[in-house]
Design a protein around this nucleic acid. Structure first.
Length: 490
RNA sequence: CGGGGCGUAGCACAGCCAGGCAGUGCGCACGGUUUGGGACCGUGAGGUCGCAAGUUCGAAUCUUGCCGCCCCGACCA
């Protein structure tokens, strides 16, 4: 293995790919556009799942599982939904292979053609709402608050590990409500959950907002999103929550009798967050030495590297660190004691930096004599030698400090790269340099489209907290009531 | 689907122009010396040169066809 990875400065995209591969997060598979998530990458996803799942449960949701296959007729029912996904669907048309009569291998048995093709789910609204039809009769049956953890397939033309793959893992929440207000509240509540997850667990500040009509989920009345800024100045949509109105209830006939004894269509929401977040995590914090993980999502939070010349010294070190490990474990901190003799300490230092382990402890004979231990921080790449006494307590606090530092750093970066722009000249110039651009927009599809064509920047969102401010559209000069956020996006 | 590039050891690649024993680095195996920031020496294993046909005494190298992958564009979380 060669040393070093390309720097962000040299080639941001190569830097990203190298981190994914060299840190052991994922690799390309023989299947075009599909990735193999390796144990270390999957461990991060499991941490994300756990945090999110707990928050879903805390907000009253239950997990369930619906089929991988969607009958073509289901997908067709909601017109906009169908159109939105039609171009990226994998379709199953046969159910049997047979020995090739002309030679080796297998061929599709043409006699096994399905009466109706099955789509591999790009999302599950239709299958789920078809089921909800049978679950809902009375207002007393509502709300239905369900989430599923699943894989989905969207046949993308160009893919990148984690950021865009043909198959990806995600969770999709699908809820049914008796009233419009309740459904909108749910949509906003789950956006809040995503936002909390991004900021408190991923240490990644996000802007909460609404998508414009052109960026809205196919079949939704309103799409809410969280948008984060990556280190190269491009935006990444990191989670979406949709208010679906009664669109799916109407096409799947999900009606209930309300308290006034009237037949009423249920109101829907759906919300999803995917393995793309692992890509976001990488691009938000990592540096030219490799991955930098926030302690709350790091599979290994502390690694201990023993340093010894004589093999007989290793047991002495192991004995000394054993109580530290158990004390850290009792605080819920995951620790790896790397006593592998095949690699030298220097190699291990570099390796754990590449893997983004937040805290590294180094301990050798010198430390045993002095009662000290070396503590290295991944986020700031600093080292200090401290007394072994009370070290577990110190590390526990240090992990919190690192978590906070990563957030503060990312927030500072975003603030320094968010610009308020009022003229078209400034806009064009600013877009080239990257970052979020806050500007007035006249609210029309035409203007949005024109700006996209001329600059490649899109409206990432209309921020929820934006203040009413009279202004003129940066492109058309027409009146505008508030600023929206533009950026080039992934 | 349009434009460009590439298929040679597990990985990264050289060799091809100008046909003549299939190579280098990393990794891997074994032995020894090493170990506070990616150690070193020695020995060794590992290949249908993408596939097929053709030209030739002889093809990784030349010709034709096919297959696959990557990058750039249109589409997208």
């Amino acid at each position: 293995m060669s040393k070093g990875i390309p720097t962000r400065e040299e080639d941001y995209s190569a830097w990203y790919n190298e981190i994914v591969k060299r840190a052991g997060l994922a690799e390309n598979s023989p299947i075009r556009g599909c990735m193999i998530i390796k144990p270390y990458g999957y461990a991060i996803w499991e941490k994300m799942q756990k945090a999110l799942d707990d928050m879903f449960k805390a907000t009253g949701h239950e997990n369930a599982y619906f089929p991988l296959f969607v009958p073509k007729s289901f997908l067709e029912k909601e017109e906009e939904h169908a159109e939105g996904f039609a171009k990226e669907c994998a379709v199953v048309t046969h159910y049997r292979l047979k020995a090739n009569p002309d030679g080796k291998g297998l061929v599709i048995d043409e006699d096994s053609e399905l009466e109706e093709p099955l789509i591999i789910r790009p999302t599950s609204e239709t299958v789920i709402w078809n089921a909800y039809k049978n679950w809902v009769q009375s207002w007393r049956d509502l709300p239905i608050l369900i989430n599923q953890w699943a894989n989905v397939v969207r046949w993308e033309m160009r893919t990148r590990l984690f950021l865009r793959t043909a198959e990806f893992l995600w969770q999709e929440g699908h809820t049914a409500h008796a009233t419009e207000l309740e459904a909108i509240e749910e949509t906003e509540r789950m956006l809040g959950v995503y936002s909390t997850f991004a900021e408190e667990w991923m240490a990644m500040p996000v802007i909460q907002g609404l998508k414009t009509a052109s960026e809205r989920f196919a079949g939704a009345v309103e799409t809410y999103c969280i948008e984060a800024l990556m280190q190269d100045g491009k935006a990444l949509q990191s989670g979406t929550s949709h208010f679906l109105g009664q669109n799916f209830a109407k096409v799947f006939d999900v009606k209930f009798v309300n308290q006034e004894n009237e037949q009423t269509y249920a109101w829907a929401t759906s919300w999803g967050l995917s393995t793309r977040m692992i890509g976001a995590l990488i691009m938000a914090h990592s540096d030219d030495k490799g991955l930098v993980l926030p302690p709350k999502l790091a599979p290994i939070q502390v690694v201990i590297v023993p340093i010894y010349r004589d093999e007989a010294d290793l047991p002495k070190i192991a004995e000394k660190v054993a109580p530290i490990i158990s004390e850290l474990n009792s605080k819920g901190i995951s620790v790896k004691f790397d006593d592998d003799d095949k690699y030298k300490p220097g190699w291990k230092f570099a390796e754990y930096e590449l893997k983004g382990v937040p805290v590294r402890l180094g301990i050798g004979m010198r430390d045993l004599e002095n009662g000290t231990i070396e503590v290295a921080r991944r986020d700031e790449l600093t080292k200090e030698t401290l007394p072994m006494e009370g070290i577990a307590e110190y590390i526990s606090g240090l992990l919190d400090k690192i978590q906070q530092n990563l957030y503060d750093r990312a927030l500072k970066f975003r603030e320094e790269n968010t610009f308020s722009v009022d003229t078209w000249e400034d806009f064009k110039e600013r877009v080239e340099k990257g970052g979020f651009i806050s500007a007035h927009w006249d609210g029309t599809d035409e203007t949005e489209e024109a700006i996209k064509n001329e600059t490649k920047a899109t409206i990432r969102c209309i921020p929820l907290n934006s203040i009413e401010e009279v202004g003129e559209c940066v492109y058309s000069g027409k009146p505008s009531a508030k600023r929206v956020v533009f950026a080039k996006a992934y």
